[in-house]
């Protein structure tokens, strides 16, 4: 078991190394002087020279990568030229809104999608199943910002139930915090629900065809026991896997949702950094999001042991 965890941890190193190379190359492949780009449009000649020195841009490419990687491994993502603070500090400041949005979205998606998927599989081929499959195609197709504006218009402007935009940090009280977060989370959860409901349905359907379901029914268990403790429990591994893979989708959605609802999180930071061509911040955010994606999927792999006792490493 511990051996497996160690092996799985080690296996993330090549992926992260490739990500680091890609992010590093991103800036070097840009036409123009990387030092001038990193320093920003308003930098003086001395500042550009300073950056050239610290990054070793006068050195050959592999040496440059070595210097850069050394800084990254020490947790030094450089300084944002736009905000004039360390990128790590910047990410820290913007973490709470994004993390809250993502967490609430995942909770909503699981609470909605898993029951829907189970019922669709139970009533396979019926009207509910077909309606859910139809919704899931729709959910994949409708852009996050269209859902966002539709909800803002209907729920906030017409009905006045939720605020149109903005974010309240958790320090201002849990009530206002949640009140501002509900609509963005529902917006973002649509595509996640579509994905999760589809996979839940498919894996529960597969489980329902197994012999132990027949046995469970023959024992006289109620349908709900059969569905939940037998079918769903055996369908857990693919469902959790897709939650992990869906994180990539979620990160993309976060960028858009935060822009629609004016939430000062990492997604907003990414867009603002691109618009102001703040390259240290762009690099930092990409590295951070990729790290999150890799770590989440690592945790998903480890969770198989708990979800399915037959899996032993």
């Amino acid at each position: 078991m511990y051996q497996f965890i160690a092996r799985r941890l080690l296996s993330t190193i090549p992926v992260l190394a490739i990500v680091a190379v890609l992010v590093f190359m991103l800036l070097r492949l840009t036409p123009g002087d990387p030092a001038a780009i990193l320093a920003g449009d308003a930098a003086s000649t001395e500042q550009i020279e300073g950056i050239r020195k610290t990054l070793g841009l006068d050195q050959p490419l592999p040496v440059q990568f070595g210097i850069w990687l050394g800084q990254m491994l020490q947790g030094d993502l450089g300084e944002s030229y736009y905000y004039k603070v360390r990128v790590t500090e910047l990410i820290g400041q913007r973490l709470e809104p994004t993390l809250s949005l993502a967490a609430l979205t995942i909770v909503i998606a699981i609470l909605v999608a898993v029951p829907l998927g189970v019922v669709a599989a139970w009533r396979f081929g019926g009207w509910f199943d077909r309606a859910l499959m139809g919704f899931s195609v729709f959910g994949f197709s409708v852009p996050v910002f269209v859902v966002g504006y539709l909800l803002v218009w209907l729920v906030s402007l017409k009905l006045g139930w939720f605020p149109v935009q903005g974010y309240k940090p958790m320090d201002d009280g849990f009530g206002p915090f949640l009140y501002h977060l509900v609509l963005p989370s529902i917006t973002l959860s649509v595509i996640y629900i579509a994905l999760l409901a589809r996979v839940t349905r498919a894996s529960v359907l597969e489980a329902l065809g197994e012999d132990y379901i027949r046995t469970a029914r023959a024992k006289g268990l109620t349908e709900s026991r059969v569905l939940i403790s037998h079918a769903l429990a055996n369908a857990a591994v693919p469902i959790v896997t897709i939650i992990g893979i869906g994180i990539a989708l979620l990160i993309g959605g976060v960028v858009v949702t935060e822009s629609v609802y004016a939430i000062p999180g990492l997604g907003r930071l990414t867009v603002d950094a691109v618009l102001s061509r703040d390259f240290p911040t762009i690099q930092g955010v990409i590295l951070f999001f990729s790290l999150v994606y890799v770590v989440v999927n690592l945790l998903v792999d480890l969770s198989y042991v708990i979800l399915d006792p037959r899996i032993r490493y």
């Binding site: 090549p14 992926v15 992260l16 992010v23 990160i251 993309g252 858009v256 990409i286 990729s290 994606y293």
Partner: peptide, 15 residues
């Protein structure tokens, strides 16, 4: 694998 670890929208935005 490395490219797939970076969300598609972020790669597109950065490029």
């Amino acid at each position: 694998d490395g490219i797939m670890a970076i969300p598609a929208i972020l790669i597109a935005i950065a490029l």
